[in-house]
Design a binder for these strands. Structure first.
Lengths: 196, 196
DNA sequence: TTACCGATTGACTGGTCAGTCAGATGAACC
DNA sequence: GGTTCATCTGACTGACCAGTCAATCGGTAA
C-alpha cells in the first residue's frame, strides 16, 4: 500500500469492468491485469484465485446492501418509506456504478445455484431483512396480513432486479428522470398493484 | 431417426440435466455424451457446437412461452385470468421439468448479456406480449392507467422468475399445494399489492 | 452378395489459460 | 555500501477440453 496507488483496488476496479464487458467465465485473468495496467503475476499477489476477485466484489457491495436494509428496517419511518429507501439504494448503486450491479446480477445472484453455496445464504439475508419490514407493517395493519412476508419480499426484490436487468439489456444511457421515476414506480407497484 | 430411440432428443435431455447440475461453462461436452449414454462424437453429429445445444433448449421452451402469452392475450378472458394463465404455464413448466427452467433462468439470461444478442430480442418479446395485455386492460379501465405497461410486465415476469429462483435455491421438493398457492399469489400480488 | 450411406464410435489435436515461480525493483533503514 | 522485505514482473507449465476425423457399424435396396 503506497501513497501513490492502491494496486489491489486498481485490480478490483479493472475486474469489474472486464467481468461486466466479457463475463466472468469468458474473460482471462490476463484481461484483468491488462485492464488494470499491471503485471499478470500481481493479480495473484493480491488474490488467491480468479473466483476470489468475484467474491470480493460481490461481498463489498452486498454488505452495503444488507446494512441499508437493516438501517431501513430499524428506522422510524412508514413501511412504504422503508421500502423506498431500499429501492433507492439499489437504483443509486446502479446509477453510480452500473458495472458492479451488472456483475452481481448476472454473474453472482443468478449463478449462486451452481457454485458458491456461501453466497446463497447472504442473498437470502436480504430477502429476510425485507420480509421483516413487511411483517412489521402487517403487525401494525399498514400492509395486508394475507400475503406471505417472504413472498412479498421476493416480489419486491424480483421487481428491482428485473428493472436492473432491463437497463443492462438495453445497454443505453438511462436518464436522471428515468432513475427517479422508476424509484417511485417500484414502491408504488408493490404497494398498490395494478387494479384500477 | 430410428423406431427405437431418437438420439438427438436423448442428447438434448441429457444436456438439460448436466447444465442444471454443473452449469453450462463448467461442464464438458463429454459429460453430456456420458449422461446420454452416447459416444462423444455423436453430439457433434447432431449439433455444431456446445452452445447450439443451449440455444436449442432455450428456444424450444421459450417459443412455447411466447405462444402461451399470445394465446392468453387473444383469449376472451378478464385481464386477471390472462395473467393467471401465463403464471400457471411458467409454474407448471417448472413443476414438469425444473431442470429446463433452471437452465433458462440461470444460463440463458446470463448469456444474453455477454453474447447471444438474438435471445435478448426473444426475451423482450415476452415482456412486450405481457405489456400488451396490460395495455388492453388499461384501455377498458380494469387496470390503472398511471402505470407504464412495460414496467408492469417487468414486475410480473420479475416476480415469477424470482419465485423460480427461490425454488432453485432451496433445492428441495416443492409440494403440490405450494405450486397451486403460489400461482394464485403471484397474480394477486401484482393486481392488488401490499397496501391493507 | 455387394454397394451405398447415414449413424455411431472414440482417439487425437491444437489452442487456451489458471496458477506458479524465480527473479527484478525499489524503498527504508543501518 | 549493504541488507531486508514487500511489491512487482512476465515467461512458463501442466491440465483441460472443444471440436475433428478416419474408421466401423448396420440397415436398405438393387
Amino acid at each position: 500500500m503506497s501513497a501513490t496507488v492502491d494496486k489491489r483496488r486498481l485490480i478490483l476496479d479493472a475486474a469489474v469492468r472486464v467481468f461486466a464487458r466479457q463475463g466472468f467465465h469468458t474473460c482471462r485473468v490476463s484481461d484483468i491485469a491488462d485492464e488494470a495496467g499491471v503485471a499478470y503475476g500481481l493479480v495473484y499477489h493480491y488474490f488467491p484465485s480468479k473466483e476470489t476477485i468475484l467474491d470480493t466484489l460481490f461481498l463489498e457491495r452486498w454488505n452495503l446492501m444488507l446494512a441499508t436494509i437493516e438501517d431501513a428496517r430499524a428506522a422510524d419511518l412508514a413501511p412504504r418509506e422503508k421500502l423506498q429507501r431500499i429501492a433507492s439504494f439499489i437504483v443509486e448503486s446502479y446509477r453510480h456504478d452500473p458495472d458492479v450491479m451488472k456483475v452481481i446480477v448476472v454473474e453472482v445472484t443468478r449463478a449462486a445455484n451452481t457454485f458458491g453455496r456461501t453466497h446463497v445464504e447472504r442473498i437470502m439475508q436480504a430477502y429476510e431483512g425485507i420480509a421483516r419490514i413487511v411483517e412489521q407493517a402487517q403487525a401494525t395493519g399498514v400492509f395486508r396480513r394475507d400475503v406471505d412476508a417472504l413472498f412479498a419480499a421476493q416480489a419486491f426484490y424480483g421487481l428491482v432486479e428485473q428493472v436492473l436487468t432491463q437497463w443492462i439489456f438495453s445497454a443505453g444511457e438511462v436518464s436522471a428522470e428515468e432513475f427517479e421515476r422508476i424509484k417511485l414506480a417500484i414502491v408504488e407497484m408493490i404497494c398498490v398493484g395494478l387494479d384500477g
